[in-house]
Simulated assay, not measured.
Amino acid sequence: MTPLRHGDRSQAVRHLQTNLNNNGARLIVDGHYGDATEAAVRVYQLSVGLVADGIAGSKTLAVLAGDDCEQLLKHADLVNAAQRLDMPLANLYAVNEVESKGRGFLDIGKPVILFERHIMYRQLSKVRNDSDNHTDLKRRADQLAAAHPAIVNPKAGGYVGGAAEHQRLGSARVLDDTAAPEAASWGAFQIMGFHWKRLGYASVQDFVTAMSANESQQFDAFVRFIETAPTLYKALKTRQWAVFAKHYNGPDYQRNLYDIKLQRAFERHSECGCGQNPVEVLRSASIHQQRQAAP
Score class of each variant (00 low, 15 high):
residue 22 N to F: 06
residue 43 V to W: 15
residue 94 A to R: 13
residue 172 A to V: 13
residue 154 P to T: 06
residue 99 E to N: 04
residue 20 L to V: 15
residue 188 A to K: 15
residue 265 A to L: 12
residue 201 Y to M: 00
residue 45 Q to W: 02
residue 45 Q to H: 01
residue 108 I to Q: 12
residue 295 P to R: 09
residue 46 L to P: 00
residue 156 A to C: 03
residue 139 R to L: 02
residue 73 L to V: 02
residue 42 R to T: 02
residue 52 A to L: 09
residue 167 Q to Y: 15
residue 6 H to R: 14
residue 175 L to H: 02
residue 61 L to A: 03
residue 1 M to E: 08
residue 42 R to K: 03
residue 218 Q to H: 11
residue 140 R to K: 07
residue 90 A to N: 12
residue 6 H to E: 11
residue 247 H to P: 07
residue 60 T to K: 12
residue 112 V to C: 05
residue 158 G to Q: 10
residue 57 G to V: 10
residue 236 L to A: 07
residue 57 G to I: 14
residue 81 A to K: 02
residue 9 R to M: 05
residue 92 L to N: 09
residue 281 V to F: 08
residue 210 A to R: 03
residue 9 R to K: 14
residue 241 W to A: 01
residue 270 S to G: 04
residue 209 T to M: 09
residue 109 G to A: 14
residue 114 L to T: 13
residue 246 K to I: 07
residue 137 L to Q: 10
residue 64 L to G: 05
residue 74 K to A: 10
residue 46 L to A: 03
residue 154 P to G: 14
residue 261 K to E: 04
residue 108 I to N: 08
residue 169 L to N: 10
residue 92 L to R: 04
residue 225 F to A: 02
residue 286 S to C: 05
residue 242 A to Q: 01
residue 121 Y to M: 11
residue 259 D to P: 03
residue 128 R to E: 11
residue 234 K to G: 15
residue 168 R to H: 14
residue 258 Y to Q: 00
residue 286 S to D: 09
residue 105 F to L: 12
residue 174 V to W: 04
residue 173 R to I: 13
residue 41 V to Y: 03
residue 139 R to D: 08
residue 164 A to V: 11
residue 93 Y to G: 11
residue 114 L to G: 07
residue 165 E to G: 00
residue 278 P to Y: 00
residue 93 Y to F: 08
residue 141 A to R: 09
residue 59 K to W: 10
residue 181 P to V: 08
residue 77 D to Y: 01
residue 262 L to E: 01
residue 146 A to V: 09
residue 259 D to I: 02
residue 149 P to N: 09
residue 188 A to I: 03
residue 257 L to G: 02
residue 54 G to I: 06
residue 139 R to W: 10
residue 72 L to I: 08
residue 173 R to W: 09
residue 288 H to Y: 15
residue 83 Q to D: 12
residue 244 F to A: 04
residue 36 A to G: 06
residue 93 Y to K: 02
residue 128 R to M: 07
residue 5 R to D: 12
residue 35 D to E: 14
residue 217 Q to R: 15
residue 3 P to V: 04
residue 239 R to G: 01
